[in-house]
Design a protein around this nucleic acid. Structure first.
Lengths: 188, 188
DNA sequence: CTCGTCATATATCGTTCCTATATATATCAG
DNA sequence: CTGATATATATAGGAACGATATATGACGAG
């Protein structure tokens, strides 16, 4: 999903500045399943305005930098619905942690343990964050559905990490892991 | 994680061509937590060779296109270990499906149902794929750990989808969902 | 027997998007 | 008063994706 649709989607819920869109995408409850950064958001908003899908008003309060507040117009709303009517593509999941785990027998055991600890901490943070978000969205069924999905998935990840971390930490049993698989086995 | 490290990592397990690296990254068991495409793999392999981290031999079989088979050398192995020694960043999860689900009250119910069906199908495919991969990697503890993580997470997602799909399908009870939340609630 | 399709294999163009940084102001803590 | 944090806009530079072009062999459908 492109940043264009993301911006339209966020602006559907409320008028917002580029800064606020970035916050929604990287800290808010959107952040669990989207990604965006200033480098894409600001140019996209400019483009969206020249394309006539959003309008922009400048709010100038004395002594403060000018805020450019964008709002979705009817054309933008249509464009959003059209974009959402495409078949969604499959989820994207990338994990440096799991990639690293493949090479656990090459690395310092302390580094592996630390990586696992941090992974667990991140998953716990995510769950807490989702918990909070859930309370704030109590009235919006769709948000609760998306947040619930995140909670279910992260709870499973946490459980798995706690129960299986020993399998890459291998507490001194290095030899079991010396077998190096040919790529067929690793490739499927 | 950059494509450079990904290539080094895959070449650690076995010598491979660009084509095979792409396969490993987009169909093999690596595919559950990495992403790569030809547009990044081929230039990266060329760069890796000029940087002296991999060596390349051309295998020319008569009547077939030349294969460029890359293999990791000692310098490449060191570079891999150094890259893996950095603290891994948090996982990246992007879901067009969950984004779409936020707007379920704007969209054709049939489209939502179809999207859910397809999401369920994709998750089931993923689980089957991981199941197969697991059997092939039976001797490699680290691979089994990473695959197990994927299975746990996808199983949770499947379970959630089956039990909660009605919450965005809302079978005729449109009114419950007409409340439109201010962005604060959606942003957390 | 030929035609289309799929698997193997390399390569690159154009576009999208991320990372990092620069700039500016206000506030709050130490 | 100094540094950190939050608000807010903007862009340069590079990384990576998505799509496509090219070429060959194999294999089944018609």
């Amino acid at each position: 999903m492109n940043i264009r649709t993301l911006c339209l989607g966020i602006l559907h819920f409320r008028d917002a500045t580029g800064y606020e869109i970035n916050k929604a995408a990287s800290e808010g409850s959107f952040s669990h399943f989207v990604m965006a950064s200033y480098g894409s958001i600001y140019p996209t908003l400019t483009k969206l305005e020249t394309d006539g899908l959003v309008s922009c008003r400048e709010e100038t309060e004395p002594g403060k930098p000018t805020r450019k507040v964008y709002s979705l117009n009817e054309e933008g709303r249509s464009a959003l619905i059209e974009a959402l009517s495409q078949e969604p593509r499959g989820d994207v999941f990338k994990s440096e942690f799991l990639f690293l785990s493949l090479f656990s027998n090459l690395l310092d055991p302390a580094h592996i343990s630390s990586a696992v600890d941090q992974q667990i901490a991140r998953v716990r943070d995510e769950i807490n964050h989702l918990e909070e978000a859930c309370e704030k969205c109590s009235k919006h069924a769709s948000s609760r559905f998306a947040i619930g999905y995140g909670k279910a998935v992260n709870a499973a990840a946490l459980d798995y990490l706690l129960k299986n971390r020993h399998r890459i930490e291998q507490s001194g049993k290095r030899n079991e892991n010396e077998y190096e698989p040919p790529l067929q086995e690793v490739m499927g």
